[in-house]
Amino acid sequence: MKKIIAFGASSSETSINKQLATYAANQFENTTIEILDLNDYEMPIFSIDKEKNGIPQLAHDFYNKIGTADLIIISLAEHNGVYSTAFKNIFDWTSRVNMKVFQDKPMFLLATSPGTRGGSTVLEIAKNRFPFQGGIVKGSFSLPSFGENFDAEKGIINEELKNEFLKIVASIQM
């Protein structure tokens, strides 16, 4: 059975991106799903000086966890147009374990926000950056206005957006 590793790239306990990543993972059939919480990988703020003391075990743990995936689903929180600090720090530390953080794994990249742009700026950054870190981006989707377009029970409730999303899911071969 294929394995999906999914997470919201945010440390918020009520992360809308974690909700979207979980919803997305559950759209794939015949898979096992593991939802990661970035709070389980909290490390000191990355710096060259701190790296002299060694790479934290949590960076190795995160890297190893990614290695178990047949598909990685990340829904990116957008903080001032870029990755959340929590995700960026994990990403930076893990890149010191291996620059190919995503280990040539297929990825489905998502983003959402309360606003009408739906995290589209950070999503574009990730789509362009992650291939350099060993990510094979198979699809991407931005969900604007999360509060209006997503329901905790039903998922994406805007029919046009849901159809667009499901077409992308169907196109991703595992």
Rank of each mutant, 00 (worst) to 15 (best):
L166K: 15
A152G: 07
G135P: 07
N64Y: 05
Q103K: 11
I66T: 14
Q27V: 08
D151S: 10
D61M: 03
D92W: 07
N128S: 10
D37M: 01
G115H: 01
I157N: 04
I157D: 02
D61W: 09
N30G: 11
K105L: 10
I157S: 01
D40T: 02
G81E: 12
Y23L: 05
D104C: 13
S84Q: 12
N30D: 11
T121F: 10
I136V: 15
R96E: 14
L76N: 15
I4H: 09
S47P: 07
L58S: 13
V137I: 08
D92M: 04
S140K: 04
S84E: 07
L110Q: 06
K105H: 09
N128Q: 15
S171A: 11
K3V: 06
D70R: 15
V169T: 12
G115Y: 02
D49P: 02
Q19I: 04
D40G: 08
F108I: 15
L123F: 02
D151F: 03
F102L: 13
A9H: 06
T112C: 00
T32P: 07
K100G: 11
L143C: 06
E13K: 12
K2L: 10
Y41P: 00
D49W: 05
T31H: 15
L166S: 10
D49H: 05
A69W: 12
N149M: 02
F165Y: 07
E34R: 09
A6E: 00
I157M: 03
D151P: 01
V169Q: 10
N128E: 14
P106N: 08
Q19P: 00
M43D: 01
M43A: 03
F165M: 08
M43I: 09
M107F: 03
N26E: 15
I172N: 13
S95V: 14
I4T: 14
D151A: 03
I35L: 12
A152M: 10
L143D: 06
I74R: 01
N98K: 13
T116M: 12
S142K: 00
S140H: 07
T22N: 08
T94L: 09
E78V: 14
I157T: 12
P114G: 11
D92S: 04
K2T: 12
E164W: 07
I172A: 10
G54I: 13
F28A: 14
I66A: 08
F146A: 04
A25I: 03
I136C: 02
S140A: 05
A111H: 09
K105M: 12
T116Q: 10
F150K: 06
K88I: 03
N149Q: 03
T85K: 04
K138D: 15
E148V: 02
E148L: 03
I73T: 15
A77G: 10
T22V: 13
L38D: 06
I35S: 09
F7A: 00
Q19H: 01
A86M: 08
E42V: 03
P56Y: 04
F108S: 05
M1Y: 13
I33N: 12
A111T: 06
A59D: 01
K18M: 04
A21T: 03
E42H: 07
A69E: 09
Q103P: 14
D49M: 10
G134E: 13
F7Y: 03
L58T: 07
A126N: 14
